[in-house]
Design a protein around this nucleic acid. Structure first.
Length: 134
DNA sequence: GCCAACGTTGGC
DNA sequence: GCCAACGTTGGC
């Protein structure tokens, strides 16, 4: 079982859109490191949805429902997308500042490399964040 | 193959 | 709106 953070700019696609759609194709990733992570995802892996820019907080959970397949939004070979299904919204969003303040979460990619849009987590880190949001 | 210049992202 | 960090591009 893998755990991930999926980062999205709420101006382009936000949590409410995901709740409405129920299922969406997570495409448009054009970063090599993020692509490696997408390819590593397995069906039923869990993900956290993070809003960058205006919100800077983790909003809710999602589940990987389809493993990496070619990204139709690109004509270049090699880029991939996954399909995710909405999970549950956290009772309160977990702000980036809270994550930074938590010593247990010091090393996650969200803090270390703020530009990476698909970030791997350990099970423990996933639990800590969802706990903080409950 | 190195590195400077440039573009983009995202936190502040 | 600014700037730091990172990625990419292109000249050499």
């Amino acid at each position: 079982m893998g755990y991930w953070i999926l980062k999205s700019d709420p101006e382009s696609y936000d949590w409410d859109s995901l709740e409405k759609d129920k299922t969406t194709v997570w495409d448009g990733v054009r970063n090599y490191q993020a692509r490696i992570n997408l390819n590593a995802m397995k069906k039923n892996d869990k993900a956290l949805i993070y809003h960058s820019n205006s919100d800077k907080a983790i909003i809710g959970t999602a589940k990987i429902t389809k493993e990496a397949f070619p990204d139709k939004t690109s004509t270049d070979e090699g880029w991939v997308a996954v399909e995710i299904t909405v999970g549950t919204k956290l009772n309160k969003p977990v702000a980036l500042s809270q994550i930074k303040a938590n010593i247990m979460l010091k090393d996650i990619g969200l803090v270390r490399n703020s530009r990476l849009s698909v970030i791997p987590l350990t099970e423990q880190e996933y639990e800590i964040i969802t706990e903080m949001g409950s």
